[in-house]
Amino acid sequence: MEYIIETDNITKKFDDFTAVNSVNLKVKRDSIHGVLGPNGAGKTTLISMLCTILRPTSGTARVNGYDILKNANEVRKSIGIVFQARALDDILTGREHLEMHAALYGVPKDVRKDRIDEILELTQLQEKADDIIKTYSGGMKRRLEIGRGLIHYPKVLFLDEPTLGLDPQTRESIWEYLQNLNKKEDVTVLLTTHYLDEADKLCDKISIIDNGEIIKSDTPRNLKKELKADIITIKVDKEEKFASLVSGLDFVRDLHMINGAIKLMVESGENLVPTIVNFANENNIFVNSIELEHPKLEDVFIQYTGKPITQGSGNKSKKGRFNMLKRRH
């Protein structure tokens, strides 16, 4: 079994809104797989279905070889999950959280203490273990939640926006922690994120999701390579006019207008900068600035979805979150 997660046209509709649309996702065993998309793209809905807390409208999935509909309990035993929103009890200690979780997941009593010590060491929370959660920092809470998700040795760890709302230093330490974990333990990580740097640095493979559909899955490297292009970002005074003129040039492979700037996808940008500036001058268009970049993941995202990731999914941004939608029932 090469793939630990396989979805089969999994779909979730809320009334007439399709949050996840016939997704076929394959996640390789022991990899870190990222689902990248803007808010409201359907990431949380997808992950909620995979961890059996949300029933799909149609289609199904297999996690660790178990069907999420027919063998929900077996799936639950095979997975660990860290929710997007904090799920800790302020008045309990870190150790008590781990004890509770171990008991709920049926970790045998005789190994429980060792496992808890192991997790505390892994998350470097030994010293805080017997303090109540109220006294923890944001990063500590996150580490505890990730550690808790691991205590029953799950085969798959689901992380829904693991570094949302954390400061840059804490984010980096969590990335490092997850990479070590993935190397050391026999665990596959499926994470959702809307941070491009997170997906780029952390993931072996990325699936780009937008409006409930997976648009493209590949390694970050291949995704960037596939663009086979440099990007020239140019700011001019008459954008509309320039855009329509420049799109006619044969070396321009693609064009996007973002926040008042025009991004041109070209094959090798170095020689083209003077050509473009001259071309603009010839047409009485004043160039404010011009910049040449090699592709980043952000450009890959724009290439496939036609917009930057911060813009949200379609005009339905946020509403796509299943819990918000449900409140209207």
Partner: peptide
């Protein structure tokens, strides 16, 4: 509201 119910609900129990 604190998400703790979810944590219990996703457990194999």
């Amino acid at each position: 509201q604190y998400g703790f119910l979810k944590e219990m609900f996703v457990a194999p129990i």
